[in-house]
């Protein structure tokens, strides 16, 4: 059972992601995490501002339960199924990150510079995190889905829109890392 505490290789985790999708299909639902953001807007009263949020959010309760499960899964995975898991990054990646000010590269799960406790006292960090979130929320709804709904479910069903969206995800990611990061980090 020692292996369970180690990082899980992609060839184990990838099929398990597909299994998550299958289980949701098998119980009559679908795999799409960003829909929860729309549901949270509806619960928060956004229906007053746009018909887009005028639906019975209770029909989406199942997906909120999946979301709550994912929070618990993050807790269990990090506290009980890991022994201080640190991604085994390419040494070149670490070197590159350190040169851009990410001293925590290669020593933590996520960068302390963005997700450490100090983040709350750094306005720059808070703004970057907020902008990142805004783009993810706006973009996923505009594209009609995120990595789970498009890149996994949609492409598994060989849907062209999902392939286009996924190509878009990559174009956006490459622009951010290669053209915008040099200006912010």
């Amino acid at each position: 059972m020692e292996w369970i505490l180690e990082p899980w290789p992609w060839y184990v985790s990838g099929p398990l992601i597909a299994l998550t999708m299958f289980t949701l299909l098998y119980v009559g639902r679908n795999f799409g995490m960003s829909s929860n953001l729309r549901t949270l807007c509806a619960i928060g009263g956004a229906g007053k501002t746009s018909t887009f949020f005028q639906f019975d959010w209770k029909t989406q309760r199942w997906n909120l339960l999946v979301m709550i499960g994912a929070i618990i899964g993050g807790f269990v995975g990090s506290q009980y199924l890991s022994d201080n898991q640190v991604p085994d990054l390419n040494p070149k990646t670490i070197e590159q990150l350190k040169a851009s000010g990410f001293e925590s590269a290669g020593t933590t799960y996520v960068p302390t510079e963005l997700f450490g406790e100090d983040a709350f006292s750094s306005p720059t960090t808070l703004i970057l995190l907020l902008i990142g979130g805004l783009l993810v929320g706006f973009g996923s709804r505009y594209a009609g889905g995120c990595t789970s709904g498009h890149s996994i479910s949609g492409i598994s069903n060989l849907q062209m829109p999902s392939l286009i969206a996924t190509i878009g995800f990559f174009i956006g990611g490459l622009i951010m890392i290669h053209l915008i990061f040099p200006f912010i980090f």
């Binding site: 996520v110 960068p111 963005l114 970057l128 995190l129 902008i131 990142g132 979130g133 805004l134 783009l135 993810v136 929320g137 706006f138 973009g139 996923s140 709804r141 505009y142 594209a143 009609g144 995120c146 990595t147 498009h150 286009i164 969206a165 996924t166 190509i167 878009g168 995800f169 990559f170 174009i171 956006g172 990611g173 490459l174 622009i175 951010m176 890392i177 915008i180």
Partner: peptide, 13 residues
């Protein structure tokens, strides 16, 4: 939509 999502995905990780 995909490109905007990708920009945020890479920034927020």
């Amino acid at each position: 939509g995909g490109i905007l999502f990708g920009l945020g995905w890479a920034l927020a990780g």
